[in-house]
């Protein structure tokens, strides 16, 4: 019996004296909206995981211990995101200056400080190396994959940016955090994104001045069909957030949707607003497709960002709050200051 007590005491002591094992902390992903981007802080830096939207099994993962001083960006959107966090000076190469808005960057290209790569599909390795490029951010459309593999093989960090495949405008803007990590300015990027989110939510919840939900159509004739953002795209989400009733609300997909031209013509009598027709004037619209004049909404209000297309492509992804603000003003009919859009005069 005595030995039994001793054994019990030993067991209790053993349990009590065992060092408390610390539960590993669940690494926290910094991205809240994005479905394709994960940024996890670690003791040594950050682990970035980027999901290929086309191939669920393909994940691009890398650990970042130090920031990059010289970054090549293959899309105007990437340039806009770097500018949004004040890091455009790190740009060493851009896709094509014809598609950029920022006058400072265009000047830098003209001075030769930033290389103009001209074509995303025909990347010049020599130009990238001459610019001492450390990291390259690309859009991941597909055809550039061979070139990207070659660039990786010579030691260049190549990072896909799938922000254009996100379905929520804030998820797109959240990719600014990736640029924050790449430039070592994550805090700044987080502050920036937080402000964008606050602005977005404020605009989304502010009371509207008209009681009905305007019936809007978006897109234009492309080839033999009407092409527009699909119901689950980030563009349609913006329309929903300002209480527009969208013509293609029933369409499937997260990218573009298609409809026959006569079908749009016959079903659009109630449309009161046409967004993003792709041309800056009504005359240009008619020149592109003379039959636009038969669409009932051609005589209604038309708004488009095409009076300054490059500004939109460069800045809209990083500023969904500005886009929402524009749409909200258009919806209410009291336009004070539009960031991107402009009404096409009658």
């Amino acid at each position: 019996m005595r030995s039994l007590w001793l054994l019990l005491l030993l067991v209790v002591w053993a349990c009590g004296s065992e060092p408390q094992q610390q539960r590993p902390k669940q690494a926290q992903n910094l991205c809240k909206y994005s479905k394709l981007l994960k940024i996890v802080p670690t003791e040594k830096g950050y682990i970035v995981e980027i999901q290929n939207p086309e191939q669920p099994k393909e994940q691009f993962k890398f650990q970042l211990k130090q920031s990059f001083e010289r970054i090549a960006a293959l899309s105007a959107t990437h340039v806009g995101m770097l500018s949004a966090i004040g890091q455009a000076q790190r740009l060493c190469a851009i896709p094509d200056k014809r598609y950029l808005h920022d006058p400072q960057i265009i000047k830098a290209v003209k001075r030769g400080q930033v290389a103009d790569l001209k074509s995303e599909q025909q990347l010049s390795i020599e130009k990238l190396l001459a610019q001492r490029t450390q990291a390259l951010v690309y859009s991941g459309f597909g055809p550039e994959q061979t070139q990207i593999k070659r660039l990786r093989s010579i030691g260049l960090t190549c990072i896909p940016n799938y922000e254009w495949r996100e379905t929520h405008p804030l998820a797109r803007a959240e990719w600014v955090l990736l640029f924050g990590v790449l430039t070592g300015q994550l805090d700044k990027a987080q502050r920036y994104f937080k402000q964008v989110c606050q602005n977005y939510q404020r605009i989304r919840t502010q009371p509207t001045l008209c009681n009905t939900n305007p019936f809007v159509i978006s897109g234009y004739v492309y080839g033999d069909q009407w092409v527009a953002p699909a119901a689950n795209s980030f563009e349609a989400k913006l329309y929903a957030d300002v209480d527009f009733t969208y013509y293609f609300n029933e369409s499937a997909g997260t990218g573009s949707c298609f409809s026959s031209i006569p079908s749009v013509l016959t079903n659009s009598a109630a449309v009161v607003l046409w967004l993003n027709p792709g041309q800056p004037t009504r005359a240009a619209l008619l020149q592109q497709y003379p039959k636009y004049k038969y669409f009932p909404f051609f005589k209604k209000r038309i708004f488009c960002y095409t009076h300054n297309t490059n500004f939109y492509w460069e800045c809209a992804a990083a500023h969904p709050d500005w886009v929402l603000s524009d749409l909200s003003q258009i919806r209410n009919g009291h336009v004070k200051k539009l960031h991107f859009y402009k009404e096409l005069r009658q």
């Binding site: 006569p262 079908s263 013509l265 039959k291 038969y294």
Partner: peptide
């Protein structure tokens, strides 16, 4: 190519300008 139209005028446009 026939699409149901809401009015005779629209049907006219559809035929002469599209179909």
């Amino acid at each position: 190519t026939e699409v149901s139209s809401s009015s005779a005028a629209q049907a006219n446009v559809l035929w002469w300008e599209f179909r």
